[in-house]
Design a protein around this nucleic acid. Structure first.
Length: 485
RNA sequence: GGCCCCGUCGUCUAGCGGCCUAGGACUCUGGCUUCUCAAGCCAGCUACGAGGGUUCGAAUCCCUUCGGGGCUACCA
């Protein structure tokens, strides 16, 4: 590891929206870099341009920013080792590939995909480990000429020597892979484009990455990466340190994927999860601070995070716990913060205008405190507050059937009587007047009496606190609604 | 199939040989509070996959077994 500064990279291949697993990795990468005072590098692995699109790349950048995982080197911010899109580094990979050829570390392979497939089938049938058989390791000049004449375009393959590769994984300890199960792998496609196997290793070396924290699925590809380091002439002491993170799994016990749960971070954002809640929850998936603390801010996370405390076993994603944490984070917001987060949701739902009017802003700011402790996602705000911004409430049929009967007519009439002449229109006065008139004098059960009024005023038997709601709604509109039922 | 990784309450985890009749959080159940819904508070249910060792003593170390997962591409 010599004495280079710590540099941790997050290098996704955006073949879609970033998902939960990606973000967990990004979070750990970021937290470790911040914890150690090192550098957080963000690189886009787009060597497979048939699957990675510009839109996905832009979305990935946006998502990381939204989460607050700011990077020191990478797209938009630049750095001394750019560019940070692999598709813009093609000459670099080509140069190294040809050097590997010259050194004899790699060789041209003329086998066609069909031939390889056929031989793999044979290997499987005869009980051998499937993998490249080394046919093209040595090709005679006349054969090479013949292949070329046949129009075969070769790939470049790395030669795996006899023996094994051993490396230390910070999370899993010593890992050894026998090269019998690490076949010669392709570095460059027939069309000349590089593969992940080449680009990832070259970039990690060139960009002076010291720590590679990534998904467990890459564990068995590590020997190949180390093989490239060797070919590049990197001293073993300068290899990056590996830490293979356990999976985040879906409820169906398979690696969390598009098929078995909500994986796209975009979805969580639309639902109204706060970035800090997502980060807090994800941090707890595979890591813990060691004490009983669970509610952590992003900066606390970066203070406490160490790789040593990362678990080796996979974690199941639990929406309920995420929601619980999100609710906690929402409750911890200041009114102003809560307002800033709420506004886009209210506007998108057309509950308020865009831009919001001063009158609406006033109402929203008065109403937010009474709903803050009763929502778990920002997306719940618009339906909860809609009754304040409409002239005519939508009465929920179920609520009407349950609470607006013959008895309720009497309750509401009485309410109108005492509310109309009320000297001051605030929730304490409303509360007092109604309680006296309905509970004390009419002898009604509070639950029953107030439910009738609640339905008439808010449209539903489930609502924010009634008297505060009436106060915010205003006397005129409250009385109108009572009179309307 | 082969290679590799993993195995504590339903879920996330604490635990790194005695402090564990296994702690916390979420979920769930019951109760309190109460104008609904929440929030809050209190209580409760529930776990060391199994079998062998090592040891005075094992959730913690070793082996086997079972179970889950990953990789096995001219994807990453």
């Amino acid at each position: 590891m010599s004495n280079r500064p710590i540099k941790v990279r997050f290098a996704p291949s955006p073949t879609g929206d970033l998902h939960v697993g990606n973000i967990r990795t990004a979070l750990f990468d970021w937290a470790y870099a911040r914890h150690t005072g090192g550098i957080f590098l963000f690189r886009i692995e787009d060597t497979d341009r048939s699957r990675v699109t510009d839109e996905y790349i832009a979305a990935a950048i946006d998502t990381l920013k939204w989460l607050g995982l700011n990077w020191d080197e990478g797209p938009e911010v630049g750095g001394a080792h750019g560019p940070y899109l692999q598709s813009q580094r093609l000459e670099i990979y080509a140069k190294w590939a040809s050097r590997f050829i010259e050194q004899g570390d790699a060789y041209y392979c003329y086998c066609t995909p069909e031939e390889l497939e056929a031989r793999r089938e044979e290997q499987k049938e005869s009980g051998q480990a499937p993998g490249y058989d080394g046919k093209c390791r040595s090709v005679s000049d006349e054969n090479r000429a013949r292949y070329t004449a046949e129009g075969r375009e070769p790939v470049i393959r790395m030669r795996m020597p006899e023996g094994s590769t051993t490396f230390h994984d910070v999370i899993r300890g010593e890992c050894t892979f026998d090269h019998n199960f690490v076949p010669d792998f392709v570095l460059v496609r027939a069309d000349g484009s590089p593969l992940y196997t080449l680009a990832v290793a070259v970039d990690d070396v060139l960009m002076e990455v010291t720590h590679i924290l990534r998904g467990e699925d890459l564990l068995s590809s590590t020997p190949r990466q180390i093989r490239v380091y060797q070919a590049m002439g990197v001293a073993p002491a300068d290899y990056p340190l590996f830490a293979h993170l356990p999976f985040v799994m879906g409820t169906d016990n398979a690696k969390l994927s598009k098929r078995n749960g909500e994986t796209s971070i975009a979805w969580y954002r639309e639902q109204g999860f706060l970035p800090e809640a997502i980060c807090n929850y994800l941090a707890l998936l595979g890591w813990s601070p060691g004490d009983d603390r669970e509610n952590l801010t992003l900066s606390e996370l970066s203070e406490l995070f160490t790789i040593e405390r990362v678990n080796a076993n996979p974690a199941r994603f639990d929406m309920k716990k995420l929601e619980n944490i999100n609710g906690d984070k929402i409750r911890a917001l200041t009114l102003d913060q809560f307002y800033q987060w709420s506004l886009p949701f209210l506007q998108r739902a057309k509950v308020v205008a865009t831009p919001i009017t001063p009158e609406q802003e006033l109402v929203v700011k008065r109403a937010l405190p009474i709903i803050q402790e009763r929502i778990i996602k920002l997306g719940e705000i618009p339906p909860m507050l809609a009754f304040l911004f409409t002239e005519k409430v939508d009465l929920d049929p179920e609520s009407v059937a349950k609470y607006l009967d013959g008895e309720s007519k009497r309750i509401i009439a009485r309410a109108i009587d005492v509310l109309t002449p009320l000297p001051t229109w605030d929730h304490q006065s409303i509360d007092g007047a109604l309680r006296t008139a309905l509970i004390d004098e009419l002898g009604l059960k509070p639950r029953l009496a107030f439910s009738a009024i609640r339905v008439a005023v808010t449209g539903s038997h489930i609502s924010p606190p009634l008297f505060e709601s009436m106060e915010i709604l205003g006397r005129e509109r409250t009385l109108a609604r009572l009179a309307a039922v």
